[in-house]
Design a protein around this nucleic acid. Structure first.
Ligand SMILES: [Mn+2]
Ligand SMILES: [Mn+2]
Ligand SMILES: [Zn+2]
Ligand SMILES: [Zn+2]
Lengths: 156, 156
DNA sequence: TCCTTAATGGAAACAATTTCCAATAATAAG
DNA sequence: CTTATTATTGGAAATTGTTTCCATTAAGGA
């Protein structure tokens, strides 16, 4: 039973196919898992979340698929300092929802924030422009994280 | 033979002692290695670089010491996506030299940049202020990295 | 100089990720 | 639809960065 048969075309199919990759049910499941949460999932988190519905998707496939999706630009890989990579969609069915992170170094909690982005955007653009010119770099992306202590941990 | 006897007091001794840590020759060696390079060293890089002069400093000690120095705020830990942590002094004998990074996703080269920081600084301050107020976070630090393709890799 | 206890090295344990390979399934071709 | 091609797969084993353990050493205060 082909994947096309099982499920209608999805917003991300084009991007995956354009990169020469096939659409499979494992990939379906993994993108689904990432798109229904706000959390920053590890490979194993993804495994746990899809295992009931897709018991035949192995952890190896998840690692491979996440790498593939990072390459295809559909997923970001983050490191919040807990020893495992964490993943997040770069965009959903409704388009991009770029944001930055606030990381508590005590309890490792991570807050997404999108406010202030408008102010930052202006500076980011000019910084990126300046850097590309000076270093001949083509900049496709950026990572901005603030580290500190969250309200809860401050209370202690 | 005590460490004091072997070598004069260093700029970082106070900070280490203030945190309740002892001054040892291994720590001496590790900070020395970090302070004579611009590179972003992994634990093993540090090991290799000091091993001739200090053959009796083990890799375990390097991991432990780097952790300790991160805690004491003397060292930053970075993740540039190559699977190992990389370390850099937060400041040298002459004071802080905070900078941001430009990471080539092709060849993994990392460029430090300090230009444009002045422009960024203004926005960083206001963003940090806004975020602390909104989320009750105390922000101590930030990480800013731009990802893209370097001149050399673009040429190919 | 002596004493307490933090720091150490090396081996072993650990955990995240990758590699290998034979089996399977997505897609192109007919 | 059927078949052929070849990317994708799951699971076991290997790999690799990092941590844990523990008996030994040495830093630094008394
Ligand atoms: Mn996020
Ligand atoms: Mn740097
Ligand atoms: Zn916290
Ligand atoms: Zn490059």
């Amino acid at each position: 039973m082909s994947c096309k048969r099982r499920c209608g075309a999805q917003w991300w199919h084009g991007k995956v196919k354009d990169c020469g990759y096939r659409i499979t049910s494992g990939r379906e499941a993994i993108i689904e898992a990432l798109s229904v949460t706000q959390d920053h999932l590890s490979a194993e988190d993804v495994y746990t979340r899809i295992h009931d519905k897709y018991p035949n998707v192995g952890l190896t496939t998840i690692y491979r698929t996440l790498d593939m999706l990072v390459n295809a630009g559909l997923v970001f890989r983050f490191d919040f300092g807990d020893g495992k990579s964490r993943y997040e969609l770069t965009e959903g069915p409704k388009g991009a929802h770029h944001h930055h992170h606030l990381v508590c170094t005590e309890c490792k909690r991570v807050i997404d924030y999108t406010d202030f982005i408008d102010d930052e955007l202006e500076l980011l653009r000019s910084t990126e422009k300046g850097l590309s010119e000076k270093y001949g770099f083509r900049i496709d992306n950026h990572l901005i994280q603030f580290y500190g202590t969250c309200t809860d941990c401050l209370a202690k």
